[in-house]
């Protein structure tokens, strides 16, 4: 974490020019993804398994956008943050696979 000292100084320049514009873009993108997800279900014309894949894909994409921009994960000095979240995601992935494909065998 010692590198953060210099990182703080370097970040000051970047943050001065950064407006809220990218946050609004992330918001509009999230709204769009949410809208597509709802529209897919309401139209209901597509194959069930295919809808599931679309929905999960849209959710993962939206979460990725929000964590990168709103939770500042794309900024430098977030290595341990990414390790922390990913180890959580690993446990979740194991549990979900177990529940979906193994619980009712």
């Amino acid at each position: 974490m010692a590198s953060n000292h210099s990182a703080t100084e370097q970040n000051t320049k970047r943050h001065k020019v950064e407006g809220p514009k990218k946050h609004i873009i992330a918001f509009l993108f999230s709204v769009l993804l949410t809208f597509i997800a709802f529209a897919t279900v309401i139209s209901g014309e597509i194959n069930k398994d295919f809808i599931y894949i679309i929905l999960i894909g849209l959710a993962i994409l939206q979460v990725f956008v929000q964590m990168a921009f709103w939770m500042h994960m794309k900024d430098r000095g977030h290595t341990f943050a990414i390790i922390g979240i990913l180890s959580g995601v690993f446990v979740v992935f194991t549990c979900v696979i177990m529940a979906e494909y193994w619980a009712w065998w």
Binding site: I85, G88, V92, C95, V96, M98, E100
Partner: peptide, 11 residues
């Protein structure tokens, strides 16, 4: 840790 909490509830 919160991710694990919600993940287990989701599963």
């Amino acid at each position: 840790g919160e991710t694990v909490l919600f993940g287990t509830l989701f599963s």
